[in-house]
Lab assay of single mutants.
Amino acid sequence: RYRTTFTSYQLEELERAFQKTHYPDVFTREELAMRLDLTEARVQVWFQNRRAKWRK
């Protein structure tokens, strides 16, 4: 599977959502995914990776 490349707008929005909550529920993820034209799975994985980065 190829690596997803996020646009700067998508990253800004994902980071903004991350500032609000590190653990968005499925509705929040679905809403973000639709708004950013991504799949909910991509959003979920982004948050997993972002939390890992945050913990370091």
Rank of each mutant, 00 (worst) to 15 (best):
Q19E: 10
T4K: 03
V26K: 14
F18Y: 03
M34E: 11
L32T: 04
T5H: 08
F47S: 00
T21P: 02
Q44D: 08
R3E: 13
Q10P: 00
M34K: 15
E31M: 11
E31N: 13
T28A: 08
E31V: 09
D37E: 06
E12V: 06
K56E: 03
L38S: 08
M34D: 12
L36S: 02
R51N: 11
Y2S: 14
R50S: 06
E30Q: 10
F27E: 13
E40I: 13
V26Q: 09
L36Y: 04
P24Q: 01
F18K: 00
Y9F: 15
D37N: 14
L14C: 03
E31A: 12
L36A: 03
A52M: 12
S8M: 08
Q44P: 00
W46L: 00
F27R: 14
F6E: 14
F47E: 00
L36R: 01
R50E: 12
R16V: 09
R51L: 12
V43R: 01
F6S: 04
L14G: 00
R51F: 08
A52V: 12
R50G: 00
E13W: 04
K53W: 06
T28Y: 15
R29F: 06
F27M: 14
W54E: 15
P24T: 02
Y2N: 15
V43W: 00
A41S: 09
R3V: 08
E31H: 11
Y23D: 15
A33Y: 03
E13M: 10
A17G: 12
V43A: 02
R50D: 01
V45Y: 13
E31S: 14
T4Y: 04
P24D: 05
W46F: 04
E13L: 08
R16N: 05
L38I: 13
L11D: 15
D25Y: 04
M34Q: 14
Q44I: 13
T39W: 04
H22Q: 14
D25L: 02
T39D: 10
S8Y: 04
L11H: 06
F6I: 09
R29T: 14
E30A: 13
Y23W: 05
E12D: 10
L14S: 00
T4L: 14
R35D: 04
V26W: 07
A41V: 10
L11I: 03
E31D: 08
T7W: 04
R3C: 13
Y23S: 10
